[in-house]
């Protein structure tokens, strides 16, 4: 049964790789910020699933930290790009 989780995680990591491509290609920094934001979301999903897959239920805390904090760096980038920092 744990196989399902690992398969899902593999897909999510593959999506992260795709988003990395956008991060590299992205012609402007906003594109890169978008890719970073996407990667954050995907990593949160990955972490939740992996915690269950390893049967280590308290690993979910890491995902919450991620979900809360990855936003901060996005805001810094946005504030810099908007010329407001």
């Amino acid at each position: 049964m744990t196989e399902i989780w690992f398969i899902a995680v593999s897909f999510l990591v593959a999506f992260i790789a795709i988003a990395c491509i956008r991060l590299v290609l992205g012609p402007t920094p906003p594109d890169r910020a978008v890719a970073l934001d996407t990667i954050n979301t995907l990593i949160v999903a990955t972490m939740i699933l992996l915690g269950v897959a390893y049967r280590q239920l308290i690993f979910v805390d890491v995902a919450i930290v991620y979900a809360l904090l990855s936003f901060v760096s996005t805001l810094y980038i946005a504030r810099y790009l908007g010329g407001e920092l």
Binding site: V65, L68, L69, F71, V72, L75, Y76, R79
Partner: peptide, 13 residues
């Protein structure tokens, strides 16, 4: 560090 990031969030907002 998490709490400090809260302060950092306020500083950016």
């Amino acid at each position: 560090a998490v709490i400090a990031t809260g302060s950092v969030l306020l500083l950016v907002a």
